[in-house]
């Protein structure tokens, strides 16, 4: 167990709200169809603000809440599958925006598991011997609306934009800690969920018309993956921790689909009351969804210091990851 504390949490979503009824005006769908199959009622869509801007807003809130000087951040990680550009990394842009000049900054691309993978990477940085990495800012942020095909009703209704993150600090005196984790990647199933796919040149010289492809997803394969592999990942992490599922106070799961979360609760034989959800308000915000839910639970005091929380992400890669913390 590593004495790493989640010091503060914060989130930011763009102001424009798009309801299911709004979508039913531009594609053949309905509020009833979307909400009964996904639990989603609305999502926030970013106009003008790119991923780095959503993340910068979260970063500024985190600094304000903690009173930390931006210069005291040692590591700044952004988990995203919708970065502003191939380079610079979104994390570098945020580092520059907030003036965290001493922070090493890079992005993690693990889609909807990105925040969990980020926690794991942060932990490794913080506990490696001789490390001077004490303070970490980790944010999951997405502007998925820019890679959605807004004529494809099978994917367009599912996603939303937003960012959320945490400040982590290593503090031997504290009882808060990272308890255990379980991460897996199933690359042979990578083509089941794709977004932003690019093609190599077909000939040279070329007219150079670069195209980036929109979201495509094999719904049933991803559904099956999530309902099978997430319970396994949670059980592995719980076993590694020497805990039982009953000792977990909350399961903070990636908000992809309420039906998936319900099925995971059923497979783990745990009360659905331990699986809080906010997908109705935000849709699937990929790497932002776990910290967005965590921040809401911390803010409304549902999650308290000392509780055991299992956080799980799952999605593109295909990837899955669980991190258990004592909050």
């Amino acid at each position: 167990m590593e004495t790493i504390k989640v010091v503060k949490t914060a989130h930011y979503v763009p102001s424009k709200v798009v309801t299911n009824d709004d979508l039913s005006k531009i594609m053949d769908t309905s509020d009833e169809w979307i909400s009964s199959r996904t639990g989603i009622k609305q999502r926030h869509i970013s106009i003008e603000e790119n991923t780095s801007q959503l993340c910068t807003n979260v970063a500024e809130q985190l600094l304000e809440k903690s009173g930390w000087d931006a210069e005291s951040i040692d590591l700044l990680i952004i988990a995203t599958m919708s970065p502003d550009s191939y380079t610079p990394a979104t994390a570098a842009l945020v580092q520059g925006n907030i003036g965290a000049h001493k922070a090493l900054a890079f992005d993690i691309s693990a889609a909807c598991s990105g925040f969990i993978y980020g926690l794991n990477v942060a932990e490794k940085f913080m506990v490696s011997s001789g490390s001077s990495c004490k303070r970490v800012m980790l944010i999951g942020g997405e502007v998925l609306s820019k890679v959605i095909d807004w004529t494809d009703r099978t994917t367009a209704v599912l996603f939303g934009d937003g960012a959320a993150g945490v400040l982590l600090e290593q503090n031997e005196e504290d009882s808060s800690c990272f308890v255990s984790s379980s991460l897996h990647t199933y690359g042979e199933q990578g083509d089941k969920l794709e977004a932003g796919k690019t093609d190599a040149l077909s000939s040279f010289p070329t007219a150079g018309d670069h195209k980036i492809k929109a979201f495509s997803m094999s719904g049933r394969d991803v559904y099956k993956f999530a309902t099978h592999k997430v319970p396994v990942s949670i059980e592995e992490a719980v076993e590694k921790a020497g805990l039982t599922l009953d000792q977990i106070d909350y399961f903070v799961l990636h908000q992809a689909n309420s039906r998936i979360v319900t099925q995971i609760a059923k497979r783990l034989d745990q009360s659905l009351a331990k699986f809080p959800m906010n997908i109705a308000k935000y849709g699937n915000t990929s790497a932002a969804s776990v910290p967005l839910l965590l921040d809401e639970l911390v803010s409304n005091k549902a999650i308290k210091r000392g509780q055991i929380i299992a956080m799980s992400g799952f999605g593109g890669g295909l990837t899955v990851g669980t991190q258990i913390i004592k909050y």
Partner: peptide, 11 residues
Amino acid sequence: ADSLDVFEIMN
């Protein structure tokens, strides 16, 4: 049943 129920039955 809806499409997700059919997924689950097949799974």
